[in-house]
């Protein structure tokens, strides 16, 4: 059995585990939706579609949807399931089997990607009543789902690093909170050029900015390839870094 097949088998099991834990899925849908409603409720009348150029004719909810999508993709529940495996001894069972170490890393990440794709679709559908449409069309929607799912893999990979290093649910949970400062150091309320200078500098150095801008461009405009490519490039680079670090850590895991 190849490493890819093993990852697929482990991914199937991880997905089954996730589906059997609906209490872990509900918050990933509810909280991002809550933020979308609150953000739109607070600023929807300030930024109206007919008077706000950066909305490209859509409602403010369309502008703020990427924040909610990224939030949903940044729960990193895969790492918490991994901690359960470690604490319960099942992780050692898998390590004692002739499974490629990369497959051990990929199993949960694959499940995270699938789960994130489904949640993204659900969030987009739930957002439709707010007057949101995907300006880049069906292909744009596919790219939107793919980019959000890829970000979910990157973030879950980061959380898995903490899980493998600390083997502690508390530490892994706390590590996940790092996303909140990253989410707010982005142009999540207004475009980057309208931010104050210090915030603009911070946002420019924050990789989440480019993923958010790519998602936003797919929602608000027809294909803006520069923004989209930048988003995918950031996710690809971070994805490779996370994968290499995860594999290194799992190989040295004692």
């Amino acid at each position: 059995m190849t490493a890819l097949q093993q990852a697929n088998v482990l991914g199937g099991r991880a997905l089954r585990d996730s589906l059997r834990t609906p209490e872990a899925i509900v918050p990933t849908l509810f909280i991002p939706m809550f933020f979308l409603v609150v953000n739109f409720g607070q600023a929807g009348r300030i930024f109206t579609s007919d008077s706000t150029g950066f909305l490209f004719g859509q409602s403010y909810a369309a502008f703020t949807l990427p924040s909610s999508l990224l939030l949903a993709a940044s729960f990193g529940t895969a790492a918490l399931f991994l901690i359960e495996d470690i604490e319960g001894g099942y992780f050692d069972k898998l390590r004692a089997a002739p499974v490629a170490r990369t497959s051990l890393v990929f199993g949960w990440l694959l499940a995270e990607a699938v789960k994130s794709a489904v949640i993204t679709v659900a969030l987009v559908l739930l957002s439709l009543p707010f007057g949101i449409s995907i300006a880049s069309g069906p292909l744009g929607l596919v790219l939107l789902i793919a980019l959000t799912a890829a970000w979910a893999v990157v973030f879950a990979g980061f959380m898995q690093l903490i899980a493998l290093k600390t083997r502690s649910a508390a530490a892994t949970n706390s590590g996940g909170l790092i996303f909140f400062p990253l989410l707010f150091l982005t142009p999540n309320f207004v475009p980057r050029d309208l931010l104050t200078r210090p915030m603009e500098i911070a946002a420019t150095f924050n990789p989440v900015t480019y993923v958010m801008e790519a998602l936003r461009s797919l929602i608000l405009r027809d294909f803006e390839w520069v923004a989209v490519s930048r988003g995918f490039a950031v996710v690809a680079v971070l994805g490779v870094v996370m994968l290499v670090l995860n594999v290194r850590l799992i190989r040295r895991y004692d």
């Binding site: 059995m1 088998v9 089954r16 585990d17 319960g88 001894g89």
Partner: peptide, 22 residues
């Protein structure tokens, strides 16, 4: 190992099938 290394969310059959597949 000392702690029965099992995934409590799976059924016994699923766990064995997964192990055999690996």
């Amino acid at each position: 190992l000392q702690e029965a290394g099992l995934d409590a969310r799976q059924t016994g059959r699923e766990l064995l099938i997964l192990q055999a597949r690996l």
